[in-house]
Amino acid sequence: MEYLGIELKKPKVAFFDFTCCEGCQLQIANKEDTLIDLLSLVEVVNFREISSEKGDDYQIAFIEGAISRQDEVDRVKEIREKTGTLVALGTCACYGGVNSLKNKFPLEDTVKEVYGDHSKETLPVKSVKEVVQVDFEIPGCPISKAEFENIVTHLVLGADFRYHKYPVCVECKQNLNHCLLNEGKICLGPITRAGCDAVCINGKLPCYGCRGPAAEQNWPSLKSILLENGFSLEQIEEKTSFFNSLSEVTKQ
């Protein structure tokens, strides 16, 4: 395949899933219009959810999911050694995601609640970068299909990809949505990294920050508005900790 007259090297890519719902992999399979084109850009050597081919030779590894068991720690370390580029795919891989809610409870009680006396192994949930070096992060619960393709194209072309510095709030305004803060809801659009086209707020669901913090945001100001609007710290904390994606700004 050529781009601007240049023959592209087709990198070998592999997808691996860890503690997650596998919804991010599904976004890739669900991009019907461009799936065949995307597949011509890379050589997929490992994608267990849709393929029985298992290759050990790859240049880009996409890691979906958080890390929550010793075998996962070992497996992701092994992948890190084999791959050139390691990409964390989705909010669980980037931040731990909703799985991290488990960490609020004592581990022993958690296992007992579900399995009784038949104990099963589990570790506190970690993001991928807490276990191995991550070269690139694609957040989102789930990832945005369009953004994923855009990023993969950049990776294959060897071009830099940069996220918008502004928050989801900007995209939401561009879509002429009614502001959910004004409708008496807790919405984290003002501090969350743009790139999702404000998909949740378009459907009148407040943003809970799955994409992590925007480079340019003002958490102290949003927090004071929410407190002025009558929300308690507990209510605010429930939303900001939902995806475990905003702690670097909300813990300030």
């Binding site: 929550s68 799985n99 809610l101 409870f105 009680d109 099963k120 429930e238």
Partner: peptide
């Protein structure tokens, strides 16, 4: 790997 959703739901609104 178990994720323990029933535990995560405890105390959630």
């Amino acid at each position: 790997t178990p994720r323990f959703f029933e535990v995560m739901l405890k105390g959630m609104s």
